[in-house]
Every structure is written in structure tokens, then in C-alpha cells.
């Protein structure tokens, strides 16, 4: 068990080092998320009471779009330099590759959120610094990443992968996106944790199901 965790961390470390050296994904994903927020601002012109209604949607759509970009990169980078072949040759189980890549993406997207949330909070004048919002963010991000990495590994082996990934990713992730938007909206309306519980449960169930299912079927995605 601890050996597997060590191996997962090795893959995670590899991804972090390669990102730290190039920094091309982090900056572009962050800028992209900001752009989405700005564009939605034009589209809805939120102000006063409407802000609270549309803000959760804008926030999570921005994060989901940014997530798709980063998931795409996660396996495109591996594929371009033939690294995926190397990874597959490693004497490790395939699910370790999945978990390593997933943790890397999870960490990455959480960092993007840590930067985006304060900016969003300032731009829309909303109090987002609450443990409840953090809980929602973690639950939603785990769900998005677990599905995103599975489909990223799948679409990287197809033609027109940039088109295929969002087509697969958005409908499957719809429950998590909806739950995150609704729960965040309820927090902004000042509701207690108890009334959020049904949305939190959906996200938790989604997370567990998709991490387990992805671990089980990942090997079929990357086999030759």
C-alpha cells in the first residue's frame, strides 16, 4: 500500500517538475479562466441582487472551462514526446498512472481556484472566503478531475481530440457542475450547511463512483 502511494507520488512529482519548468499551462489556464469571467460579465451585466444569482454559475463555468484546457494538456504533453510509452513500460499498475496524473491535475486545478476565488470575490464583491465554499470547491474539483483525466487519456488517442474531450466531459460532469453551482448559490444566500447537504451528497457520491470506476477501467483506455 505505502509502496503504491510512493509510486503515485513519483508520477505526481514528475508532473509538478515539468510544469514548474515550463509554466506554460498554469499561466494560460489562469488567464483563460479570467477571460471567461470577464466575458460573462459583459453577457449578464451583473449588479446588485442579480450578482448573487448569476455569480455561482459564472464562477463554476469558468473553472470547468479552464479545467478542460488543463486536462487536455495533461495527456497531450505525455503523448507528444512519447512519454506515455515510457510510463506504460514502467513496472507499475496502470491505476497508479491514473492516480498520479489525477492528483497532479487536482493539485493544479485547486491552485488555479485558490488564485481565481479571491479575484472573483473582489470583482463581484462577494464573500467567498468561507469553509463551506472550500468544501464545495474540493468536492466539485475531485469530481471534475477524476472524469477529466479519464477522458483526456481517451481523447488523446483520437483524431480531433480538442473537440472530443469537451463533448465527452461536459454531459458526464453535468451533475457535479449543477451541484456546485446550486450549493455555492445557497451559501451566498446565507443558508446553513444542513440545507446544502443534498448537493454535497451528490458531489460526494459522484466523486467516489468516478474515482473507483476510472481506476478500474483506466487500463482499457491506455492499452495499445
Amino acid at each position: 500500500m505505502s509502496k503504491s502511494i510512493g509510486k503515485i507520488l513519483v508520477i505526481l512529482r514528475k508532473d509538478l517538475i515539468s510544469e514548474a519548468r515550463t509554466r506554460d499551462v498554469a499561466a494560460s489556464v489562469l488567464i483563460f479562466a479570467l477571460l471567461v469571467i470577464v466575458i460573462f460579465n459583459f453577457a449578464f451585466e451583473p449588479g446588485g441582487e442579480t450578482t448573487k444569482l448569476v455569480a455561482p454559475g459564472i464562477l463554476w463555468v469558468a473553472i470547468t472551462f479552464a479545467g478542460v484546457l488543463s486536462f487536455n494538456r495533461s495527456f497531450v504533453l505525455e503523448k507528444e514526446n512519447g512519454c506515455l510509452e515510457g510510463l506504460k513500460l514502467c513496472p507499475i499498475n496502470k491505476e497508479i498512472i491514473y492516480l498520479g496524473k489525477m492528483l497532479g491535475s487536482l493539485l493544479f486545478l485547486l491552485i488555479v481556484e485558490i488564485i481565481i476565488f479571491p479575484i472573483f470575490s473582489v470583482l463581484f464583491n462577494l464573500p467567498l472566503f468561507m469553509p463551506k465554499v472550500a468544501l464545495i470547491a474540493v468536492l466539485a474539483t475531485v469530481g471534475l478531475v477524476s472524469v477529466g483525466i479519464l477522458f483526456s487519456a481517451l481523447s488523446v488517442h483520437t483524431k480531433a481530440r480538442e473537440i472530443l474531450l469537451p463533448i465527452l466531459f461536459f454531459p458526464v460532469c453535468a451533475p457535479v457542475i449543477i451541484a456546485a453551482v446550486e450549493a455555492t448559490g445557497m451559501v451566498l444566500q446565507g443558508e446553513a450547511l444542513g440545507s446544502l447537504s443534498s448537493w454535497l451528497q451528490i458531489m460526494a457520491v459522484f466523486d467516489v463512483v468516478f474515482v473507483v470506476v476510472s481506476v478500474l477501467i483506466f487500463e482499457f483506455v491506455i492499452e495499445e
Binding site: 458526464v172 470506476v213 483506455v221 492499452e223
Partner: peptide, 16 residues
């Protein structure tokens, strides 16, 4: 490969 990917998606998509 298409058949395999479709099978993977057929399993993952069932959640809804």
C-alpha cells in the same frame, strides 16, 4: 480502439 473507447464511455456515462 473505437469500440474499446466507446465501452469505457458507456460505463462512465451510465451515472446519469
Amino acid at each position: 480502439r473505437g469500440a474499446r473507447f466507446a465501452a469505457v464511455f458507456g460505463i462512465a456515462g451510465f451515472f446519469s
